[in-house]
Design a protein around this nucleic acid. Structure first.
Lengths: 249, 249
DNA sequence: ATGCTGTTGTTATGATCCTACAAACGCGCT
DNA sequence: AGCGCGTTTGTAGGATCATAACAACAGCAT
């Protein structure tokens, strides 16, 4: 069992297959088609188990069963397997969220709660940044010294807002960041006036209108953690404090 | 626990969450945000379990944790949760199939094996039909008495083939089927010459070039099962037998 | 301070379920 | 009988579910 193979099996497991199912499917893709014995030979799945495993794979639409003696199995094409799995995923997701949308509380007033939230992980922070940006009505201020933190999704969101007349300022001491975002229609890119030499931990800063703020830091191992708040007194006070300093402006 | 709710929980489980995780996520969407106790109140998840469950949900990016006392939890928006899950799915699928593609045997000769395969389930049959159609070079003959078995994907596939100069004939005694497919560019729709009154079981028939055939039946409970073969002597013989009769033509 | 009460967050402990894995069995064939 | 095929049964291990116990702490009356 190679390193790659067990990684692939793990991935299949996260897609909802059991490890036997993953192994049988992979084995069948290797040998093209074959009997239970053929499959058992190329994997460490016991032959007696192949039958039931193949049956459940058939129900999932990942292989075809030939009624013969001995029974032969044949995998569907890779493309077909992918679309089958994807369709299944979309169907389940729809079912799951349909209900959630039904029962979701209309959280109207809740926006003004005095809450500061923590988000861990680069992608999570990405999502939150885009979400905040997308709700901007008046102005957006975004800053980071790390080009990696400027994602395509952020660019799109900023462009959309700019098209709606939202004033957008990007602040960075990194030329790449300024070029990438400054080239967008309606986006102004600046250098921060001061330069703190020892700054190796700050990640990004985002200010939206006068009531939304996000601030992230990057720890030693590269993990990003952000705090954010929107529509709270906290947020507006923090914004005032930050903008009173001349770090960004 | 309503019927809908447990269905939604099942769907979340198939997406890879545990039932506790699903319950906590749903509960948080209902209440907006809250403490472990709030969550435990609106579900049957024991409060002591909420903490660890919420932690794993945070790792999945489905909720945010507020560092306070007591700890407060807040779900991400439904849209964000969906894209997070979808991204995860796509990533895993890519990982899984990358490996499969690496090791997939170049099954060259294998096409000409003498095999007849069985496919169970409407969607599976749909997929196979589209796959066979897409590989047609010369001509396609498709027939069914059931309008439901004419899917959009089939229509597209036929249109594509027609554009490549493949001769396409659709045979049905159902006017709706003839209209739907006959209206496509390059598709000829016909009525079958004979009419067997007692035919309540046949599903669809597909003949591709002179070497691919698929035949499906519908059982009492509406389930569809198909047999098919391509590139085999079986297939060509069957095609000759069928076309010798005047049932379709 | 002291003691009481209720809550919070953590941890431990069975019960239960599913998968992984192994072995045996019935059957048809030669 | 001997052999391969397909089915069935049994067991060990792990994850999840469900409940309980625990220390730490805040509020409040003595």
């Amino acid at each position: 069992m190679t390193r790659d193979e067990s990684a692939a099996i793990d991935a299949f497991e996260r897609l909802g297959l059991t490890s036997y199912e993953a192994k049988v499917f992979i084995a069948l893709q290797q040998v093209g088609s074959g009997t239970a014995r053929d499959v058992a030979r190329t994997t460490d799945v016991p032959r007696s188990q192949v039958y039931s495993v193949a049956e459940s794979l058939e129900e999932r639409g990942l292989l075809a069963v030939q009624q013969a003696s001995p029974i032969r199995y044949r995998p569907v094409s890779i493309e077909e397997a992918q679309t089958t799995l994807r369709n299944r995923f979309e169907r389940e997701q729809e079912r799951a969220f349909d209900y959630v949308e039904q029962v979701k509380r209309d959280s109207v007033e809740e926006e003004t709660q005095e809450d500061i939230w923590t988000v861990r992980g680069r992608e999570r922070v990405d999502d939150r940044v885009v979400d905040l940006v997308s709700n901007a009505d008046d102005r957006i201020l975004f800053g980071t010294r790390l080009p990696d933190l400027v994602t395509p999704a952020l660019g799109e969101a900023l462009e959309n807002r700019a098209a709606e007349g939202v004033a957008i300022t990007v602040v960075s001491r990194d030329e790449g960041v300024r070029d990438k975002l400054g080239s967008l229609e309606g986006v102004t890119a600046k250098r921060p006036p001061t330069h703190r030499e020892g700054d190796k931990r700050s990640g990004r800063i985002l200010i939206v209108d006068d009531d939304g703020i996000l601030l992230s830091v990057v720890d030693d191992s590269g993990g990003e953690t952000a705090i954010w708040s929107a529509g709270s007194l906290f947020a507006s006070v923090l914004i005032q404090l930050i903008e009173a300093s001349d770090e960004i402006r």
